[in-house]
Write a protein that binds this DNA or RNA. Structure first.
Lengths: 114, 114
DNA sequence: CTCGATACATCGACCGTCGATGTATCGAGC
DNA sequence: GCTCGATACATCGACGGTCGATGTATCGAG
């Protein structure tokens, strides 16, 4: 009933994934675990959300993928940012900041505007 | 193509509306204009999003409505927070903060976690 | 040999957003 | 009187992203 931070994930997943990939190439499973770990379980990216997102990003030309072997000797599809993806990351980061600031303005307001 | 802050509105509209109503009763049209004004046009709450949201909040018992006359002498439905709505506002504000912090953590990270 | 973790993927249901569209009234200006 | 823009409500269908469930397969540990 109480809205968990989960539901806020909307529209932010792409940004999160792009940012994660800016640290270097990675495969999906690792991305999900890093985000979860970094945020202390606050953000839990389900695989059912992540893989579609990854495919979406690839289709838009922001990432490209390549099959490789993970450090654990398992086959894994490694994703890496493209040039356009890097540009997109900048754009989305800026939008995110602008958005958070805007919401912050409303949350900090205590009296009715005239 | 570039994701406008608009698309981030997801899941935040309820919070925004609840907060707006915490300043005192208001009708839908005014809520939309206040948010738009406060954020310098960054957030543009369409009426097609706002009215469903308002009805949703009412159905959940977080706001209640009453027909009255606006200062301009037009009929308008004034919404006001209920006790449970006030509680909900607190909860959602906390979630929002937690979420923003979590995303911030990821955005501020520059190296791959181990 | 089994089990848990790793790793990929797809599917349908669900829900909220958004643009378009419609109605009606008030006050201002001509 | 008339028209027009702003005020104010509302609904609709299309769209898109998220999520839980489910399925597959492999590796290494015990």
């Amino acid at each position: 009933m109480a809205r968990p931070p989960q539901d806020l994930l909307q529209g932010t997943l792409d940004l999160l994934v792009l940012k994660t990939l800016s640290w270097g190439p990675a495969h999906g499973y690792a991305i999900a675990r890093w985000i979860q770990q970094l945020t202390g379980q606050v953000l839990d990216v389900g695989e059912g959300s992540l893989y579609p997102a990854l495919h979406r990003l690839e289709e838009r030309g922001w990432v490209k993928s390549e099959w490789q072997l993970s450090p654990n000797n398992r086959r894994a599809k490694f994703y890496q940012l493209t040039t356009r993806g890097r540009q997109q990351l900048r754009t989305e980061t800026a939008s995110w900041t602008e958005f958070v600031d805007a919401v912050g303005k409303v949350l900090r307001t205590t009296t009715q505007p005239t």
